[in-house]
């Protein structure tokens, strides 16, 4: 079996993307409980002067 076949087989066998998504969901929950989504919202509803080049 070639290196590529082994590599691909391993990749199919173990869904790393699912682990990454799980970590992401956990981070998002922690961020929610720390009030970080509210902070994102508060920033996003005001015009960002730096973003438009006058701040």
């Amino acid at each position: 079996m070639s290196y590529w076949q082994i590599f691909r087989k391993k990749k199919i066998e173990f869904p790393w993307w699912l682990v990454g998504t799980g970590i992401g969901a956990a981070f998002l929950m922690v961020g929610f409980f720390y009030g970080q989504l509210e902070e994102i919202y508060q920033k996003a509803i005001m015009i960002c002067l730096e973003c438009i080049g006058i701040g």
Binding site: W16, W17, L18, V19, G20, T21, I23, G24, A25, A26, F27, L28, M29, V30, G31, F32, Y34, Q36, L37, E39, I40, K43
Partner: peptide
Amino acid sequence: MALNKREIEIPFAVLGFFFIFGS
């Protein structure tokens, strides 16, 4: 915005979005 805070904290929510979209 998270890194601009006076006291730096881990930006969990943004990292969460990156991990979900990226994965």
